[in-house]
Design a protein around this nucleic acid. Sequence first.
DNA 1: ACTTAAGGACAACAACTGTTTGTTAGGGAT
DNA 2: ATCCCTAACAAACAGTTGTTGTCCTTAAGT
Lengths: 205, 205
Amino acid sequence: MANSIDKAEDGPYRSDNRRQELMASAAHLFNQRGYDATSMRDIAKEAGMLAGSMYYHFPSKDDLIIATYEEGTRLITEAVVEAIRDIQDPWDRLEKAAIAHMNTLFGGNNFSILLCADISRTAPTLRIRLIESRDSYDSLFMDLIESLPLPADVDPTLLRLSLLGSLNWSSSWYRPGGHSPTQIAALFVRLIREGLSTTDFHSTQ
Amino acid sequence: MANSIDKAEDGPYRSDNRRQELMASAAHLFNQRGYDATSMRDIAKEAGMLAGSMYYHFPSKDDLIIATYEEGTRLITEAVVEAIRDIQDPWDRLEKAAIAHMNTLFGGNNFSILLCADISRTAPTLRIRLIESRDSYDSLFMDLIESLPLPADVDPTLLRLSLLGSLNWSSSWYRPGGHSPTQIAALFVRLIREGLSTTDFHSTQ
DNA sequence: ACTTAAGGACAACAACTGTTTGTTAGGGAT
DNA sequence: ATCCCTAACAAACAGTTGTTGTCCTTAAGT
């Protein structure tokens, strides 16, 4: 299951092709230092090759960035879709989705968490491609939220932005050892579902 | 009121000192392109001087970054403190604080919105200084949240992170013309206060 | 065993990075 | 009228950036 990732397209590849390792190294460093602060030489060094050699696999740094980012959306989309497959209740679906979202972000895969980085300050050409990729994932949450029984005066888009804001912002403060990703996601969904009113109406569960 | 900003410390300055313009140009570009993608020459050009000349005002790029960032925390702290001064009710105080927060972010000052940029991927030396500055602002919200009547099973820290996550994430999607900063802030506070339960218990106000 | 292309090493590129240097025009106080 | 210091210019610094071309090695197909 590890040797067919992302070679969906075509072409003959040798068994010692290191495209995957390259992407993993890139994702790791992008997370650690950000896109700009990570040089092609840094990535190559971590992957055990020279900078110029990477241009066999990726025509430019931007293409490498896009590839890792899209791998991130692919993985997290897969996880969320799987998590809500058999759930019917709209609120439950949202909760399971949020939990899968968080567990994927902090579950060891270095790709999905790239989605949490703010891309609004990157170069326009690159940004457009990344936004495109993320939008397809966001629409998944949009559907979940529009399935909720909402008060008429609440904009579902604003609601999605609030939830995803809370969840994604966690990438800047989450550290293993405290609350688990599952706990965090469950609380954040509970917040927008029940609020914090201590009137005893909602103190159960 | 515009000529005494940030010259609180000491020293004789000439009336044509352009430190302020320099900081404004820097903040503008930092917001637009991010720290790394903004070169000293870019900033100097926007301010109408040469790169080397900036080193009279700031000993390094990091110092310039820190100065603009701290100006941002100063301004937003001022706005929030002012907004909650005469409010007593804990929930009202939180709401007014969130509203002041958002209005300052998008109110035209180019400094405060720097607080919304994710700094977890910047160079460690710089990051420490920025975190220090932001923590002092965050503690303001921590106090507001700890004053709320909270259920025992809700971690106030997690609550603060959820709210500030929602609010700050808006810097990546907010555009004038849609919902106002005030509306957005009010909704986000209402969410964690009442939730979205459509059981009619909380549909008043 | 031979051929071919995949995969990568290596060196060099021009452009750009933050920073430093030496120097100078001019405002402010004496 | 003098002198100091602010504020900026202009040019250069050494290092790093993404990228490219050329060359070599090696795995796979026949």
